[in-house]
Amino acid sequence: MERHQHPAAAVASKAVRYLIVLFVIISLNFLLPRLMPGDPVMNVLGEEAYYGSPEVLEELKAEWGLDGPLYVQYFRYLGNYLKGDWGHSFLCMRPVSEAIGLHLRWTLALVLPAIILGALLAAIAGALAAWYRKSKLDIGFSATFLSFYSMPHYWLAMVLLFVFGFLLGWFPLGKVTSGDTTGLAYVVDVGWHMVLPLGLLTVSKAAYDFLVVRNSVISIYGEDYVLMAQAKGLSQMAVLFKHAVRNALAPLVTVTAIQFGAILSGTLMIEIVFSWPGMGTMIYEAIGARDYPVLQGAFFIIAVCMLVANFIADMVYVWLDPRTR
């Protein structure tokens, strides 16, 4: 359908869709505490404030916009959210936006490299499996990636940490650094702490992509241009990795966009096991403390990440497939 649209119109309709999503998410954040069972005041402010003295409670209610009719509250809420005022974390004793800013970078530090490395791994493994299909290599790759696909990420994280951390002692038992280091030593230290979580996420991401690459390369192998590439005198590997994989990249990008939420959720979960100070750990602690504003902020910012990922995927797709330009 979008093929017949003017490019600008396509971008505009996409932008409208994204705006609607953001609007729905902010509205959900506003409505959920008020619709759910229990006193909305408690749902918004948390238990500690709720059981404090009545005067303080009234003050807090005014401060957090819980007084007045619902629609007034709603517009105030919408305005605050767009201004970047997402509430106050009881647990961290700082504005939610600040807390999220601190944690988001560590999550992105895991997710972004994992997506790129995982796609690379899947492209190579999927192409080889397609080329040597039905061979031991193909079956081995398929079985490995299918296992990684099936096992819960955080459980795999526990197993990895147990084997490589506790038993073998090759890698640290969690966190980002081991102590006060600066400069290059800091980077090396962080890299060392990153090996296990990043490795696990990379393989998990590759597990999502592997079958897609394998099947698209197999179907591309029936195309005339692959035959033509062979007839030109290209080597098998050149045909495979240049002509076939190049055309399997577009479906790979689509899958990455679809699976972005899953890989992000996986990251959140394994952060908890690795004590990685990202969004996952923040959410975990917020759940324990019923720190609602933080959970709402996390929901919002992760949704924004999803939208950005979708947007980037759309752009990359157009770049990869000249026919869509």
Partner: peptide, 13 residues
């Protein structure tokens, strides 16, 4: 495009 896990967490909480 809505992140399911965070939303499910929020609702479950």
């Amino acid at each position: 495009v809505m992140p399911m896990l965070p939303l499910a967490i929020l609702v479950s909480v």
